[in-house]
Write a protein that binds this DNA or RNA. Structure first.
Lengths: 172, 172
DNA sequence: TAATTATAGTTTTATTTGAAACTAAAATCT
DNA sequence: AGATTTTAGTTTCAAATAAAACTATAATTA
């Protein structure tokens, strides 16, 4: 394959047989999981966000808020931060814009004046009624070349990586 | 084949008998590949970029440029754009900053005054000499819970998705 | 109960980024 | 050859974002 890529150490640099100098390090980004994962995710995200954006004028943050609300009915901004792992400022802005467009509404908690319960409005549900099937259809097309087993394994492997990430992050 | 993947579109909600109100759409983001992939990639990228950033004051764009140069010795900015799929402005800035720090150097092509050949300086190689092993070690830890087969399958599946993405993108 | 600390959410500030405009050089066309 | 278009790379501009400061409430503690 990419056999000859390996070669070309620190070769022609002149200091010739210098012992102290470290061998030329090399990294094939295409074999490097973080890079591969990131660029794949990026491409997918961009392709999909074209749907959100062009057809519904929704950005990714807004889409995530809506999607979680479709799933959980009532949530606070804090919870959305946790679930989506988005920054609270980003969530705050998404919520604000969705409320302005009356796709969601907020009701202040009586027991704690700081928290606001978020829920979809009818308009929000209607929008999701169109958007979700489209998103699903797109995903289906994307994964249409995978077998059911491959798809399942992919999600499983991703879960494993997530758990390991959890461990690594808690260590530091 | 990809049987059960198909399902759960706008399926069970049956616009059936109820005429006026649309059935409540629902999406479980945790089962939605684009979301899962994106948040996993994001977390990995962030964790890893802490290494680049804290220990070497390198951002992700710069890291990618360096990594490709470790791999290919001499590249133009254009090529780096293609390989990394990064915006040319972003590449331009990364190159600029790396050159200022003398981690890479540029030599103008004699045959075409517009292009500049980029290559690592000795300092750049030295930095990579430390950074690459660390990045590799981190990746190894990350995937340490996967079997060799799982890891291979993951990369394969990702390649499939990339190819499909290519197809989908060329269609539109 | 008063003072301190923590929490939910917003706003401000600075940075990052992509898109578009731009520059200079090359390639193509007439 | 001169005019037009393309290309490589940079700079400018506007939008998105994260981090930090901030506001208002609630919880803790002394």
């Amino acid at each position: 394959m990419d056999s000859d890529v390996q070669r070309h150490a620190a070769s022609d640099k002149g200091e010739a047989d210098d012992h102290s100098r470290p061998a030329k390090p090399e990294l094939d980004l295409n074999q490097f999981l973080p890079y591969r994962l990131n660029s794949l995710a990026d491409r997918i995200s961009q392709a999909l966000s074209r749907i959100y954006d062009q057809r519904f004028a929704i950005n990714v943050a807004e889409w995530r808020v809506l999607a979680w609300l479709s799933h959980r009915d009532v949530l606070t901004a804090k919870q959305i931060c946790e679930f989506t792992r988005m920054d609270k400022a980003r969530v705050s802005r998404a919520v604000q814009s969705l409320e302005e467009r009356e796709l969601i509404s907020r009701t202040q908690s009586t027991s704690d004046q700081r928290v606001h319960y978020l829920h979809l409005t009818l308009a929000g549900e209607e929008l999701l009624g169109k958007l979700i099937p489209e998103a699903h259809a797109w995903e289906t097309e994307l994964v249409s070349t995978l077998t059911a087993g491959e798809y399942r394994d992919l999600l499983n492997t991703m879960s494993k990586l997530e758990r390991q990430l959890e461990r690594l992050e808690s260590q530091r």
